[in-house]
Amino acid sequence: MSAVAPGVVAGRPVTPEARSGAAARARRLALTGGHRRSKAIRLLVGAAIAAAFLFPVWIALVTSVDRASQVFVYPPHLLPSFDFSPYARVWRMEDWPMYFENTLFISSVTVLLALSTSILAAWALSLGGLRRSEAVFRTMLVALIVPGESLLVPNYLILYKMHLVNTLWAQIVPFGASVYGIYLLREFFLGMPRSYWEAARLDGAGPMRFLCSVAVPLARPILLTVGLYIFIGSWNSFQWPLIVTVSHSVQPIEVAVESLQQAHSVDWRRLSAAGVIATAPLVVLYAFIQKHIVAGISRGEGLSGG
């Protein structure tokens, strides 16, 4: 900034070049001024867009705590009146704790299972001791392009033969391996400096010990992202549980919400409350982990799961 001072630039007499440099700087300053104005406008427009994205969530919240007399009104009620009885009714009468338990069980076990199989496979595939490990890895990648809709009927039949239809496990085992996880972890293990392994070996660690106490802790950021993606995908899965379950006792929240919707299609307070209850855990989770979600998408991942 001080360099723009007229007359002397950095202790030297002003040459024509320096003066034109100052002019360019002034021009750039004017430009950033314009930038600042355009930034403010963009922030305003962006806020309007964000508000539009939040508006439906707001409506669901308002409807869920409206008084009964204020639901079927026009113009619609845009501010809440705080009657929480629909929540109590949803929570007490519809076996919601059970659906939550089912969903939590399915998602957590899927994450644990898929991460363990991925860590082990990625480690073995990056060690190089395995014959044809490149071919194995490439074959695994093929799984990424198999279109999911062609698998619905055969997977149902396979689970039927395994006597797993209408169980919690039917919603877990089809997602027991994550090719994305294997891919990302293998890349990571391959890129790990050799000196880590050499140091560990000098201390007398075998490959398994090294994997557990050095490689896996180092890969924590990847495990976190991959795990979160699997967790959210599993928590939100609807199509597969709908296909593979019939009993309420093994169904996850999404299927329960759908049954509720078909059974009570006019009780909008209760339906909205159910929707809010089912959505809230993810919104809370998202508040903490959105950075990882963004990182995952930018790397080309997407939420998967039925």
Partner: peptide
């Protein structure tokens, strides 16, 4: 973050709000 938020929400649970 706000614009990305709906992406992580469950489809059926949020679709109910939209039916209304």
């Amino acid at each position: 973050s706000i614009v990305l938020l709906p992406y992580v929400t469950p489809v059926v649970a949020t679709a109910i709000g939209w039916i209304w």
